[in-house]
Design a protein around this nucleic acid. Structure first.
Lengths: 214, 214
DNA sequence: TGTACATCAGTGAACGCGCGTTCACTGATGTAC
DNA sequence: TGTACATCAGTGAACGCGCGTTCACTGATGTAC
């Protein structure tokens, strides 16, 4: 009680303390890997920023590679789940009779292009890692597959509502939409003037089958 | 004549010899940077693979960064010009009454996803470099702008022919098409089964305004 | 054409540095009685 | 509850190594006469 601990916060068990350390190291690793890249990041910087010595890293992870892959495995799924929720919510609001779905998604994309630099950098880093370490390709394919699988029902529902893009199955359209989404966010970060706020909305409308809105 | 030189190949001047060395180093750098990434590539590996010592690199470039940026500046423009030519040719063939434009582009994308691993990796590497070194952002924006500018007339011509995607200007549609093109190539390399051969063609048809082909 | 000197592209050894990883150690937490 | 010992998360110094960069040197190319 008397050395700065929050009152009412009980002492952690050994296992809980270790898990806390692990999470702090992962948070720090996310920042540093995003800033410097896999090869450019140093374990000393990661552990020091988390408030530990380098040894702590080896007490929690097998080495640099395992830290990197663990990080992406856990954080990626979390970020994708968040995305899927936002999209599903936008569709619900739409159905409940509010704003336009495509506009809502477009606004979401703009928001993401301004925040979430970390996620984008880690995604690119992972892609590069996979083409250089083919044994990790399966992991990446699974992660992207999860993203499409999560969003597909939402897209399928939107197709029911806005008309079927005759050319594509729901799964294919989801793949295309995800790629477009990520690509426009990336492009916007490089040159904001080339990607107007509502471009994603308009591209989606075209994909969903022709001129829909005035 | 008597020491292995090709007959009829005159001796190079000092400047020509230096330029040849420079190009060989750039070729080697393209391979190694694509394989290992900017931070992961070593100057010794690059120069050795080109058949020179590391000193030769410093005789031709200011350092690692300048080598990397020089490489991308020169090779990127070249690759983009090649792409634009192929697309323009596909449209010409189309007009001359051959196959379907979208199919031709889709076939081109499939080809690229199988070759050109190097170009894709360097592009991703450059993007990461730019978000980490904002002073290089302008260079990247210019390079991507060049790509869109080159392809825009072709897309505009296709729009005249296939109908206007009411939602987008030719420039915007070009941006979207380029992003989709690169994204599908990338996706295909990770998981070929998620991206059928003709998905790009079908997505383009939707973007160009609704169901066009049987 | 021939000779004497200047230039400079490329050599290769050396440098200092930061990296990933290891390991003997510490002291707080957990367990047995 | 109290004591004695075991465990083990995290420490921090040390290691060997490969890296980017430098630099005195070399010998072929270029220049002047």
């Amino acid at each position: 009680v008397h050395d700065g601990e929050a009152p009412g916060r009980r002492r952690l068990t050994r296992a809980e303390a270790k898990e806390q350390t692990r999470q702090r190291l992962l948070d720090s690793a996310a920042r540093v890997f995003a800033d410097k890249g896999f090869a450019g990041a140093s374990l000393e910087e990661i552990s020091e920023a988390a408030g530990y010595s380098t040894g702590a890293l080896y007490s929690n992870f097998q080495g640099k590679e395992e830290l990197f892959l663990d990080l992406l495995r856990t954080r990626w799924s979390r970020a994708i789940a968040r995305r899927a929720e936002v999209v599903a919510k936008a569709l619900d609001d739409e159905v409940a009779g509010g704003a336009d779905l495509f506009d809502a998604l477009s606004r979401f994309a703009v928001q993401l292009s301004e925040r979430d630099r970390e996620f984008a950098a880690l995604g690119a880093e992972l892609w590069l890692y996979a083409i250089r370490n083919p044994e990790a390709m399966g992991l990446v394919a699974a992660m992207l597959g999860e993203q499409v699988a999560r969003l597909e029902p939402v897209i399928a529902a939107a197709m029911e509502r806005y008309g079927w893009a005759a050319q594509m199955t729901p799964k294919e359209l989801t793949t295309v939409a995800v790629i477009l989404f990520d690509g426009l966010i990336r492009q916007r970060r490089i040159d904001a003037s080339a990607v107007p706020d509502d471009l994603f909305a308009r591209a989606l409308r075209s994909l969903f089958g022709g001129p829909a809105t005035p």
